[in-house]
């Protein structure tokens, strides 16, 4: 297990906030919790750096917080406000059911990880607990994209998935080379901007951001 209390706290926060993201139905709160979970991810990186993971994790943590906790939520919120999109999001599930599904998916992700050979050779992993959790978060992100009906939450589902992958890179590799890390973050940022622009244009064109209206290309 992680040896510092700080890391443990961050881990718990990360999981809790991600799962909350899965269930929230209003855009501002959803974005807030997404930002918080990203902050927790940054915290995990700092924790790892403090435990001897290397100094290069510090700029990574800063980048995570800057991109995922500040820039991306800001862009999404800005776009949503400018297009006058409804802040109420649409899902196939009720919030209470979402909790069950979310925990179930998260749990199956963890069990998947525990059965994988990745976890079985955990003697070289610095943070063994983070690895199964990252699996869980990835699955939660994927399922969130599937069960959410509107463009904005699908986007956040994708970002949650991305967070899971980042968590995996932290746990399994102790972070990847900084140059690549920045490349990945800028790709995420540009992707988010593009997605937000698109969703804004869809909103302007259709007056809704429900994806069930975007299902005409069936040939």
């Amino acid at each position: 297990m992680t040896n510092s209390l700080f890391s443990l706290l961050m881990l718990v926060l990360f999981v809790g906030e991600t799962l909350t993201c899965f269930t929230l139905m209003r855009l501002p709160s959803l974005l807030r919790f997404y930002a918080l979970s990203s902050v927790a991810l940054g915290g995990l990186a700092i924790g790892l750096a403090l435990e001897g993971g290397g100094v290069h994790l510090i700029p990574v943590a800063v980048a995570v917080v800057a991109v995922k906790a500040l820039l991306v939520p800001f862009v999404i919120k800005r776009m949503a406000e400018r297009s006058g999109a409804s802040l109420r999001l649409v899902s196939s599930l009720r919030p209470s059911a979402s909790w069950f599904v979310g925990i179930g998916v998260f749990g199956s992700g963890i069990s998947l990880a525990l059965h994988s050979p990745l976890y079985q050779m955990n003697n070289m992993i610095q943070t063994p607990a983070l690895l199964p959790i990252s699996f869980g978060v990835i699955l939660v992100g994927l399922v969130m994209m599937i069960i959410r009906k509107d463009l904005l939450s699908q986007m956040i589902g994708f970002l949650v998935l991305e967070n899971g992958i980042a968590a995996f890179s932290l746990s399994a590799l102790g972070g990847i080379p900084v140059a690549i890390e920045f490349g990945v973050y800028s790709a995420v940022l540009i992707g988010a901007i593009l997605m937000a622009t698109l969703s804004q244009r869809v909103q302007n064109l259709l007056g809704t951001h429900d994806t069930s209206h975007l299902s005409e290309l069936t040939d």
């Binding site: 994209m145 699908q154 975007l214 299902s215 290309l217 040939d219």
Partner: peptide
């Protein structure tokens, strides 16, 4: 068979999953 191309992105994501 063409019904697989349902037009619904959530279904596509589900397929991938």
């Amino acid at each position: 068979v063409k019904k697989i191309q349902s037009g619904n992105i959530r279904f596509y994501l589900l397929l991938m999953f």
